[in-house]
């Protein structure tokens, strides 16, 4: 297993990726939620202008409802993970079929270790 790295002192970063290293900055990660929040606010506001066609409306089609559905559905799925995992998760070799070791999948495995 490769060692942990900080992204700035790494010689093995792909040249094209260097211009995107800001994506891993703590500030960007912590503030990421603003992007979908603003996006959601804008699209909900746009919903005022682009209303549902009268003859083509579901029971739950009202102002901003798809945002609400998306948020609730996503949260429900994620919150269901904990009880489901407790109920369905077993050890990896539960069926007695050997777990695939990581180094036999394909011949070319190039993991550079940083000294």
């Amino acid at each position: 297993m490769a060692e942990e790295h900080t992204h700035m002192d790494d010689d093995y970063i792909h040249p094209f990726a260097r211009r995107f290293l800001w994506l891993a900055d703590e500030k960007v990660v912590k503030g990421f939620f603003w992007l979908p929040a603003i996006g959601l606010a804008v699209t909900v506001a746009l919903g005022l202008y682009y209303d549902f066609p009268e003859k083509h409306k579901a029971l739950w089609d009202f102002f901003g409802s798809w945002g609400l559905i998306g948020f609730m559905a996503y949260s429900f799925v994620v919150f269901s993970a904990k009880p489901l995992f407790a109920m369905l998760a077993r050890k990896e070799n539960y069926y007695g079929e050997e777990v695939v070791p990581e180094d036999i999948i394909e011949p070319v495995v190039e993991v550079h270790h940083h000294d």
Partner: peptide, 27 residues
């Protein structure tokens, strides 16, 4: 709206440590 809201839910759940960690297991 649907996609932004789902992304927002993910970002908030992750931010407040409510998104489950990935763990090795046979499901």
């Amino acid at each position: 709206q649907l996609l932004f809201a789902a992304m927002l839910a993910f970002a908030l759940l992750k931010k407040y440590g409510m998104y489950p960690d990935e763990r090795r297991a046979e499901i």
